[in-house]
Computed example of a mutant assay.
Amino acid sequence: MRPAKLILATAIALAGFAGSAQATGPTLIRVDIAGQSQTFELKSSEPGVSRYEVIAQKWTQDGVTPTREILAYPPHFTVQPGESQAIKVLARVPHAKTEGTYRLFVRAVEGGSLSFSVPVFILSTDKAAAPVITVHRDGGSLVVTNSGDKTELIAATRSAAGDKNAMLYVLPHSTGKLDAAADVTSVVSRDRREYKVQ
């Protein structure tokens, strides 16, 4: 079985999270064939023994729901101080034209306080799949619609005063909202694609 395709396969720095545990592995997982798997590693620097759980969820613009379309193994495990645990992610969904979107939630249930999530994307069967973004204003918010088959990550808003950091995943065939000042004229994706406010 070939490994899943990854992007951003760098260490996850968890300085912004409570606790002193550390995770190394992908910050985002892309799987290009159903049935493939990918492994990432969680290393704990907690002073004592810590127990963790990993929960897979289907991810839509409205939130997350339980799923069996991807699995994480082991779903429960114990990590000794200074030791690591490998976590395998397995996709169990057939090919589809629209990218599949999921999240893995990792949290300590005993002896630690680590909590984070990792987006998981099952790639479209269409290699040319792309986000198709439109943006319009609704009061103090920008409404961002993605009618394409691939997720887009909005990373900044742009105005005459310059770019300001933003963070909004707009999943395929979904709409999200982003707070923005009145002078914002466009948004910019993680890959520096610019979308004008209509």
Rank of each mutant, 00 (worst) to 15 (best):
Q80P: 00
V197H: 09
Y52L: 05
D191C: 08
Y195W: 12
I12S: 15
A180Q: 01
G35A: 02
K88N: 11
S141Y: 10
S50L: 03
V120Y: 04
V93A: 10
V135Q: 01
T101Y: 03
S84V: 15
P81C: 07
A166V: 01
D163T: 10
S84P: 02
R137F: 01
V109N: 04
P47H: 03
F40L: 13
A21R: 02
T65F: 01
K88H: 06
L8M: 09
F105P: 00
T10E: 07
G162W: 07
H136A: 11
T27Q: 12
Y73E: 15
S20G: 10
S117V: 14
I154Y: 08
E110N: 14
S189L: 07
T125N: 15
A91G: 09
L8I: 08
Q61T: 07
V106P: 00
G162T: 10
F77M: 09
Q22P: 00
A156E: 15
G148F: 05
V132W: 06
P94A: 13
H76Y: 12
A86L: 15
I12W: 12
E41T: 15
D163Y: 03
V64H: 03
A130H: 09
E99P: 10
P26R: 10
I12P: 11
D179Q: 11
A56P: 14
T65W: 00
K88Y: 01
G148N: 08
G139D: 13
Q57E: 14
P94T: 12
H76D: 13
V188A: 04
D179H: 08
K177W: 06
L14F: 06
F40M: 08
T27C: 08
P3N: 07
Q80W: 05
Y52I: 02
A86Y: 03
R30F: 09
L171P: 03
A161L: 10
K43V: 15
S45E: 14
D183G: 02
G35R: 04
S159E: 01
V93P: 00
H95L: 12
G100K: 07
K177C: 07
D191G: 10
Q36T: 12
A166Q: 03
Y195H: 12
Y195A: 09
D126C: 09
L142F: 04
K177M: 14
T60G: 11
L42P: 00
S84C: 07
A182H: 04
D179N: 11
D138E: 15
L171T: 02
G48A: 10
A4M: 04
D62K: 13
R192N: 15
Y169P: 06
E83W: 05
D191H: 11
V132L: 13
A23M: 11
S37W: 00
I33M: 12
A155N: 06
P81M: 05
A9F: 11
A9M: 10
A156L: 11
E83F: 08
V187C: 06
R68C: 03
W59I: 04
T151A: 15
R51I: 06
S50Q: 11
S174D: 00
A156N: 14
P81I: 04
L104H: 00
G16W: 03
P81R: 05
A128I: 07
I70R: 00
P74D: 08
S44K: 02
V106I: 14
F17V: 14
K97A: 11
S37R: 08
D62R: 12
S124C: 09
A96H: 15
Y52N: 04
G148E: 09
M167P: 01
V64C: 09
Q85P: 01
S45T: 13
L123H: 04
V109K: 08
L28V: 14
T67G: 00
E53L: 14
P119S: 13
A11R: 12
